[in-house]
């Protein structure tokens, strides 16, 4: 599989996510779209990891030094961190949506318009 295909897929996912965040009214759907954006980034990170690793190995044949080995895993570690932090962000988000729902009895973000101009 080529890197291009993964990058195009992740770009498409990312754009669908941006559209969802900007166009949807329901706060839960907005969070789902945010999650989709993070998933797109995770996909790109893992694909890049594979690509960077193969480039590293080709550039340093037979070299198993720690510096080379470290770069093999960077992208995957990146992906893991993205997943964990995105989960924390969404957990916080759902808490805030519940707080919003308690005071306004809706999760429609077009109703979030109390601030004065």
């Amino acid at each position: 599989m080529d890197l291009e295909k993964f990058l195009i897929l992740s770009a498409v996912l990312f754009c669908i996510g941006i559209y969802g965040v900007l166009a949807r009214r329901n706060a839960i759907t907005v969070f789902m779209s945010l999650e989709l954006m993070f998933t797109a980034v995770t996909l790109a990170a893992v694909a890049m990891s594979r690509y960077v690793a193969s480039r590293q190995v080709l550039a340093n044949p037979g070299d198993a030094s720690e510096a080379v080995l470290q770069t093999l895993l960077t992208g995957q570690v990146f992906a893991l961190f993205i997943i964990v932090v995105a989960a924390a962000e969404i957990a916080l988000g759902l808490g805030i949506v519940i707080a919003f729902y308690r005071s306004r009895e809706t999760v429609d973000i077009s109703q979030a318009n109390l601030m004065s101009r």
Partner: peptide, 24 residues
């Protein structure tokens, strides 16, 4: 609550953009 919701959504959007840039 409204301030929190707006901050969260826009902050999430900006971190997604930042992350995508970092990955590239």
């Amino acid at each position: 609550g409204e301030a929190g919701l707006k901050f969260l959504i826009l902050s999430g959007l900006s971190s997604a953009l930042l992350l995508y840039g970092m990955t590239l």
